[in-house]
């Protein structure tokens, strides 16, 4: 199995943010995790990428148990993530943002001799180009538009050459045109790099156009899974999304 989660649990105080979640992802798929706001999507992402430790359950990646490992170790194993709330290096340029990730991926971050700016230029520009940021390469991360910051998020994650790319609401806060543009980018990237993608979204329209496999999260539990058609016709899902807020 490429990536598997077994009975993952996490509580904050008395609230079960992740309640007995099990799922699996096949290599080469675009998988989506959907659910209304507060369903526990970001918590789930934080659990599998090492930001927080699960209370119980297992995360298995490429046959290896990575439960409770540090964010750094998990990133090294080949799971890269982007963040829902923009999380970049604001006082570094877009180029430098990607550069530190590339250098780290190549295990060069303990090199104290070579000038960093002269290493791997083509690769860094390639990543900026494929995420549509080549014009903004010399702008500070903090000065980019929101949409471009989200793109930079993706570029930083891609710099790690991940086998599994976990994108936490890559279209959050974007205008409709921007949304479809970034989805196109994601599809192209996937074809180019061959990495598997786990997306999470609360906006279903975004997901339906690209997903192979969908998991629906509600109040910390998986309530449905299947392909796009199955999810569209699933009664529980319709109730959650159409039956008003809970």
């Amino acid at each position: 199995m490429f990536f598997e989660v077994q009975n993952l649990e996490k509580s904050f105080g008395g609230v079960k943010a992740t309640d007995n979640v099990s799922l699996h992802i096949n290599e080469g798929d675009i998988c989506s995790l959907i659910g209304p706001n507060g369903a526990g999507k970001s918590t789930f992402f934080n659990l599998i990428t090492g930001y927080i430790r699960p209370d119980s359950g297992k995360v298995i990646f490429l046959g290896e148990d990575i439960t409770g490992k540090t964010a750094m170790a998990i990133a090294r194993k080949g799971i890269a993530r982007s963040f829902q709330i923009v999380n970049i290096f604001p006082q570094l340029t877009a180029y430098e943002n990607v550069m530190v990730a590339v250098l780290s991926q190549k295990k060069r971050s303990f090199n104290v001799i070579h000038p960093a700016k002269k290493i791997d230029k083509d690769e860094i520009y390639g990543l900026l180009q494929s995420t549509g940021l080549e014009q903004q390469a010399q702008m500070l991360g903090g000065q980019l538009s929101h949409g471009n910051q989200k793109r930079l998020e993706v570029a930083i994650a891609l710099a790690l050459k991940p086998k599994l790319l976990a994108l936490d609401e890559p279209t959050a806060g974007m205008a409709e045109e921007e949304k479809s543009a970034i989805l196109e980018t994601i599809k192209t990237l996937m074809k180019m790099t061959g990495c598997t993608i786990l997306l999470c979204e609360h906006d279903m329209s975004v997901i339906f156009s690209i997903s192979d496999q969908i998991w629906v999260l509600h109040n910390g539990r998986i309530v449905a899974n299947g392909n796009v058609e199955e999810i569209k016709n699933n009664e529980v899902v319709q109730r959650i999304y159409l039956g008003g807020r809970e």
Binding site: M72, A80, N87, I88, F89, L92, E96, S104, S109, A159
Partner: peptide
């Protein structure tokens, strides 16, 4: 440059390994 990244954002730095 890794140090600068850490200064800017230690959390994100750990996520780029």
């Amino acid at each position: 440059w890794a140090l600068r990244a850490i200064r800017e954002n230690p959390v994100r730095s750990s996520f780029v390994s």
